[in-house]
Computed example of a mutant assay.
Amino acid sequence: MTWTDKPLVGFDVETTGVDPETDRIVTAAVVRYGGGQPNQVRTWIADPGVEIPAEATKVHGFTTEAARTAGRPAGAVVGEIVAALVELVDEGFPLVVMNAPFDLTMLEAEAERHGVESLFASSVPMVLDPRVLDKHVDQYRPGGRRLEDLCRHYVVPLDAAHDSGADAVAACGVTWKIANRHRWMTRTPLEELHERQVYWAAEQQAGLRDYFARTPGKEHRALTVRGDWPLIPPMRPGVWADA
């Protein structure tokens, strides 16, 4: 039996913006995927406590008013998300997160902001990032690497893009397909696969940084590329609580 025969834990958030260190969670999902059992999907809506920009609303559909009406206090939501993840991760299941540095940094920042013990302070998750895995096994494939692109390439259903539950399920499906298409992954211990992704992600981001640096009109974007995985570390202690 390999880790692909056991459940995967999917995690996804939709947010107020694109900065994981200062923006806030609006919706989130934790999924128990596969392992011979029906998928279990748990979702949350949070009142982020700040205005939701129109650009973010266009992505996930939640206005500030809708989140305030349907959502619960952000601190309570963050605490429940962390608890749900810790429970599943502590069973030894890998944590699947598409573009892990965004979602996991967002969760860590929100935990600090609301005085919640964070996921990485509570547990030691073995993370699988389908974007990193796909880029490693098929580096030169043309086309995008968004979740929608990966679902299309690996023939994985995506019922509603930018719905956190649907995205978390789809990310697990893509990860399962990648591993079973490249069987050496299924034989690689999760701890080792996690550590390999640290290096693969750094190499991939270095390549992206180089591409921006030598592309006219995109040189400034090279300064924004970070190679940290699966978390972007805070610049100083307490910085997320201040954001």
Results as ranks from 00 to 15, higher is better:
2 T>H: 15
8 L>F: 15
11 F>M: 11
13 V>F: 11
18 V>A: 14
18 V>W: 11
20 P>K: 10
20 P>W: 14
24 R>P: 12
35 G>R: 02
37 Q>E: 14
39 N>W: 11
40 Q>F: 12
42 R>W: 03
48 P>M: 10
52 I>V: 09
52 I>K: 01
54 A>E: 15
55 E>A: 13
56 A>I: 04
58 K>R: 13
63 T>R: 04
67 A>Y: 03
71 G>D: 10
72 R>K: 13
73 P>R: 09
74 A>V: 05
75 G>V: 07
76 A>Y: 02
76 A>F: 04
80 E>D: 14
83 A>D: 12
84 A>R: 04
89 V>Y: 02
89 V>E: 05
90 D>S: 14
91 E>L: 12
93 F>R: 08
98 M>V: 08
98 M>Y: 15
101 P>E: 15
104 L>D: 04
107 L>D: 05
108 E>S: 08
115 G>K: 09
115 G>Y: 02
117 E>Q: 12
117 E>K: 15
122 S>Y: 03
123 S>W: 03
126 M>G: 06
129 D>W: 06
129 D>S: 05
134 D>Q: 03
137 V>S: 10
139 Q>L: 14
140 Y>N: 15
141 R>P: 05
141 R>T: 12
145 R>E: 02
146 R>D: 00
146 R>T: 08
148 E>G: 15
148 E>H: 08
156 V>G: 02
157 P>M: 08
162 H>S: 06
166 A>V: 10
167 D>E: 07
168 A>F: 01
169 V>I: 15
171 A>V: 06
173 G>D: 04
178 I>F: 07
180 N>S: 07
181 R>G: 15
181 R>V: 01
181 R>Q: 13
182 H>M: 13
187 R>N: 12
192 E>N: 11
194 H>T: 03
194 H>C: 06
197 Q>E: 11
198 V>N: 06
200 W>K: 08
201 A>C: 12
201 A>E: 12
204 Q>M: 09
211 Y>S: 08
211 Y>C: 04
211 Y>N: 06
213 A>T: 02
217 G>M: 04
218 K>G: 04
221 R>C: 06
225 V>F: 11
228 D>H: 05
228 D>G: 05
228 D>Y: 01
235 M>Y: 14
241 A>T: 14
